[in-house]
Amino acid sequence: MRLLIFLTTLLINQSLFAQVSIGVKANNKQYLSYEPIRVTVTISNQTGSPLTLRNTGGNNWVEFVVRNQSGRVINKVKNISYKGTTIPTAERINSSFVLNNSYDLAQPGNYSVYAVVRTPQQGHSEGTRSAATYFTVNRGVPSWRTKVGVPGVAGDEREYRILNYSGSGTPQIYVQVEDIKRGHILATYSLGRILSYRKALKAIDRSNNLHVLFLTTPELYCHTVVNTSGKTTKRNYYKGVGNTHPTLFTHNDGGVSVTNAKFYDPAKEMEEKTKYHKLSEMPEGYEQ
Rank of each mutant, 00 (worst) to 15 (best):
W61Y: 05
L16C: 06
K147N: 12
F17W: 11
L32Q: 10
N101Q: 15
P151I: 08
A261G: 13
L279E: 13
T128D: 02
A106Q: 12
G167E: 03
R235Y: 04
T136S: 09
A200R: 04
T136Y: 03
K199I: 11
T52R: 14
K181I: 08
S21G: 07
T250N: 08
Y103V: 09
T56S: 11
Y134A: 07
A18M: 12
F17C: 06
D265H: 03
S190M: 02
I194S: 05
G230H: 08
P283T: 13
K239W: 01
P151E: 04
K268Q: 13
A131S: 14
L10H: 04
F17Q: 15
V241A: 11
V117P: 04
I22K: 03
Y31E: 11
A261F: 04
Y238F: 15
V148C: 02
P36N: 06
S143E: 12
T47R: 02
N28L: 07
I173N: 06
I74Q: 15
G58D: 08
P142E: 03
Y237I: 02
R235S: 15
I93D: 05
G57P: 00
V41E: 02
I185T: 15
S166W: 01
S81V: 08
Q107S: 14
L248D: 02
P151N: 12
T85P: 00
G242K: 00
V24C: 04
L53W: 08
G167M: 02
V98H: 08
T244K: 14
T247K: 15
V137C: 07
V177C: 10
N75A: 14
P218Y: 06
G109V: 06
K239D: 00
D205K: 03
V39R: 05
H251P: 00
R235F: 02
T259I: 14
E63A: 13
R129N: 12
R145N: 14
K234T: 07
E35M: 12
K275D: 03
Q172E: 15
G140Y: 07
P171I: 02
S33Q: 08
A200E: 13
I87V: 14
R182K: 13
H211M: 06
M1K: 09
I162F: 01
N79G: 09
S190L: 06
E284V: 10
T128A: 08
N138E: 13
T216D: 04
T217N: 05
N209Q: 13
E271Y: 09
Y276N: 09
T232P: 01
S143K: 10
K29L: 08
S125P: 00
T128K: 03
L16V: 08
L7W: 12
T216H: 06
A203W: 01
I37D: 01
S44Q: 14
G230C: 11
T86F: 09
V20E: 07
D205A: 07
S81Y: 13
M270K: 15
F214G: 00
S33F: 00
Q121H: 06
V177T: 15
K181V: 13
H124D: 11
S257F: 01
T259W: 10
Y238M: 01
V41S: 06
K231N: 12
R139F: 02
A200V: 04
P36C: 07
I204E: 04
L7E: 14
